[in-house]
Simulated assay, not measured.
Amino acid sequence: MEPLIALVAVTGIGLLVGALKVRPLRRLPTALRGGLAAMFLLTGGAHFVGMRQELMDMVPPALPAPGLLVTLTGVAELVGALALLWRATSGPAAGALGILLIVMFPANVYAADTATLWWDRLVPRTVTQLVFVSATATVLADRLRDTSATGSWGRIHLGLSRRPRRSDGGAVDPPATEPQAVETSGPERPTEFRRDGG
């Protein structure tokens, strides 16, 4: 329940701050990046402090080395949370974290069998996981849309995409230049057109 509260609260605060002051936070995918980062910092930290044994008990018996699995997934969540905060890596991070949520879902099913609280039972856990996966998918889709507008993941990863932004957060296309005729030497050569305007 705490991860859901962290996601909703931080996303809501981000949208509120965006509505009042910080223009980029007006967009849901941007605010969701903050909410997801808070959520995964919370859950990733729990893999090491406070809930480690409980998380190891959630690992289905068919899987080996529960301690190692909990450590690896905790590291993945913490790294993913930090990567969500940087625009350039937020798309791949959201995609990887969404896959991680799906891969770890059997642990939720296994843990639901022994649940004593209503929100730990299978249906609430499933709905909560769907919310988390939907949030990561929203961030990934936004980054893919922006990537297609800028041309490549590489430019985004390197932070070289510094295109002006519209008020809704989308990229502004550069002005198109009209082809201009350029005369070449000699009467036998046809007129050439160049797009660069020169």
Rank of each mutant, 00 (worst) to 15 (best):
E2G: 08
A6S: 04
V10M: 06
V17N: 05
L20P: 11
V22R: 07
R23V: 12
P24E: 02
R26D: 01
L28M: 13
P29T: 13
T30I: 15
L32I: 07
A38N: 14
F40P: 03
L41G: 02
G44Q: 03
A46I: 01
V49D: 06
R52V: 09
Q53R: 14
M56F: 00
D57F: 10
P61Q: 12
A62H: 10
L63A: 13
P64C: 02
P66T: 10
T71N: 02
T71P: 01
L72G: 04
V75T: 11
V79M: 15
A81N: 03
A81K: 08
L82F: 12
A83M: 15
G95Q: 08
G95E: 03
G95V: 12
L97F: 08
G98H: 02
I99C: 06
L101D: 04
L101K: 01
M104S: 14
P106L: 15
Y110C: 07
D113F: 10
L117P: 07
T126E: 07
T126P: 04
S134N: 03
T136K: 08
A137N: 05
T138H: 00
V139N: 00
A141G: 09
A141V: 14
A141Q: 15
D142H: 11
L144C: 00
S148N: 06
A149S: 11
G151A: 01
W153C: 08
R155V: 07
I156L: 13
H157E: 08
H157C: 00
H157N: 07
L158I: 03
L158G: 11
L160W: 10
P164W: 01
R165A: 03
R166N: 05
S167H: 11
D168S: 07
P175D: 02
A176T: 05
P190D: 15
T191Y: 06
D196I: 07
G198N: 10
G198E: 14
